[in-house]
Design a protein around this nucleic acid. Structure first.
Lengths: 327, 327
DNA sequence: GATTGTCGTGAAATGCATTTCAATAGCCTT
DNA sequence: AAGGCTATTGAAATGCATTTCACGACAATC
């Protein structure tokens, strides 16, 4: 920068101001300096900048890649969410650091933050990290979580109305007169348990409705498929299935078909997320839609408020049932 | 750091060495210093470190999020690739900057690199950026590209043997005696054109084989589906379809079924990527498998060599046909 | 006892941009 | 013509860790 200053016959601060678009420097001079910088292949050292400003304009997005081969991550839904976040960040010219490694405990997160790697965290899915997240939220680190939104939550969470999602599915089952329901998913994840709770609430409003729970902990396609087969082979015959994701719904459809059961003739089925293939699946999958696109924007918005010192409130996004062939 | 040094009764350099695991400092002292740092909530400022070392231990991974709503990105395959890269990087303790915004021209990439935002680039998919990539590769910026591997390529590319993939599908079609083939994909992308070329080669080995091309430029699910319907409604009746991705294959299956055509009875179908749902789809999709997992590791390996000043060669990964119900 | 070597340590230089604060030049009032 | 104001500008301080180089202490060798 000093060299550029010399060539442009100005001082270092002036170059700095010109390049960062400060109003203190005239447009003419700015132009001229920018030109010189360009010609000499000079680009501001971003690390020196971050060091000086104690601001990184970077946020870390935590995806549970660990569960990649457990399937949760492969879901197009997560990808859409990530794309939404990425887009919202790029509008603000903030960089996205994807799932930096070695972050396990709340202490790890705090250290990472203190090392000024990022100005804050967006954490996708509480999963089984609920306890860690609680700890972390007390440590004065800007963070926003995508997942279950609970009244008592100590941190800012953004998520769909999962309880409603479950209830909508249940109400539809009631309409169709189904009485033996099956919920497929891992209820140890808050987000998914809320869906189960919503389904249960609907169940209590019907008469003679029984709900079973197929609690799969490895949420991959193949595992879900196999667990569903086992379930059927135990002579169970649900007339309504609510799956925690469309991907899982596909696994269900496949397993049930192997045993000669087809939706909607032999059972009703509702999935979750409304991923693109669901609409054209055979049969087309009824599902609960989440608004991924605004999700990303809201997550970013909240986190930015937090970084600026604000204390944003959690937000719950609406959800709706999309009826297709399976139900 | 100076404070920690004072408290530990040593000098700044010693603290630096202790915390970075230098062998120059005794284990005992290292322990003690680490303890003090922990107790006082001290964490090394990563930006100062990067500034001093002129090394960021960060690489930028470029995904074409722009095409998100054009579908390409939603493909689980891309996600798997990303997960593979992420994992390979985390082993090396390198951070992953995801698709920083504002990078269009080769010049943008160079500036970004010169600003020391990252030590190099992994670029997923040449797409329509082929020209930019050529430019960039001449500018002395470490980069590796996932996509078509071509002999004359000026940059290091890693990819599957797409030509072979196409040929395998074609050979299978020949075995089954199909004569009216349809290729579905956007051949303006090198990667996909190679698959087409491979298919064509197989075609020339058969007798009386005709190949048509359904050149879809928006590779999203719904668009593919609609284009397939249009195609059928133009009274075309292919007896073999090769789709550039399993996702596209699903769209094809759906569209064909709407016109009363079912695989494998009415036509043979081969997809690409072997994403998890393909195995259990109805019908189960025959497909060309790419090895995503080693892909990520190889990409990272090559890039690291390049960052160290090496000049790694391109690599082509094997590919194989997985026969399932559709063919 | 003198010499060579090893090990650990610290002072100071370095990487680079931003920001504060004081100073200057130029213009307008009165 | 003197005083006051604005718009620019620059010198120096600052953010923080790493690295070079030199030095002291101590053990081993002759």
């Amino acid at each position: 920068m000093e060299d550029i200053a010399r060539i442009a016959n100005v001082s270092k601060p002036t170059v700095s101001r010109a390049l960062s678009g400060s109003p203190l420097v005239s447009d003419e001079k700015r132009e001229q300096i920018a030109k010189i910088a360009r010609e000499h292949g000079y680009a501001v050292n971003r690390n020196a900048q971050k060091l000086r400003q104690s601001r990184t304009n970077t946020i870390a997005v935590m995806l549970d890649f660990g569960s990649h081969r457990h399937g949760a991550i492969g879901d197009p839904f997560i990808f859409e969410l990530l794309a939404g976040v990425s887009e919202a960040l790029s509008v603000r010219d903030v960089d996205l650091l994807l799932s930096p490694s070695g972050l396990e405990t709340a202490g790890d997160y705090v250290d990472f933050y203190r090392s000024r790697n990022a100005d804050g965290f967006i954490i996708i899915g509480q999963g089984h990290r609920e306890r860690m997240l609680r700890d972390l939220s007390r440590r004065d680190v800007p963070m926003v979580v995508w997942g279950a939104v609970m009244a008592k939550s100590p941190y800012c969470a953004v998520g769909s109305d999962n309880f409603l999602g479950g209830r909508l599915a249940g109400q539809r089952f009631l309409q169709k007169g189904c009485q033996n329901w099956l919920f497929v998913g891992n209820t140890s994840h808050d987000e998914i348990r809320l869906r189960y709770d919503g389904l249960m609430e609907a169940a209590t409003q019907g008469s003679d409705v029984a709900v079973e729970l197929l609690n799969i902990d490895v949420m991959a396609f193949t595992e879900t498929h196999d667990r569903a087969l086992e379930y059927l082979d135990a002579k169970k015959r649900p007339d309504a299935v609510f799956a925690f994701s469309d991907t899982a719904a596909m696994a269900i459809i496949s397993a049930f078909r192997q045993r000669g059961l087809v939706a909607p003739d032999n059972y009703a089925l509702v999935g979750y997320n409304n991923i693109p293939p669901s609409e054209h699946y055979n049969p087309a999958i009824s599902t609960i839609e989440q608004n991924t696109h605004s999700a990303g924007a809201i997550l970013v918005e909240k986190l930015m408020q937090m970084i600026e010192g604000g204390k944003p409130k959690s937000a719950m996004l609406p959800t709706r049932l999309i009826q297709r062939e399976t139900c």
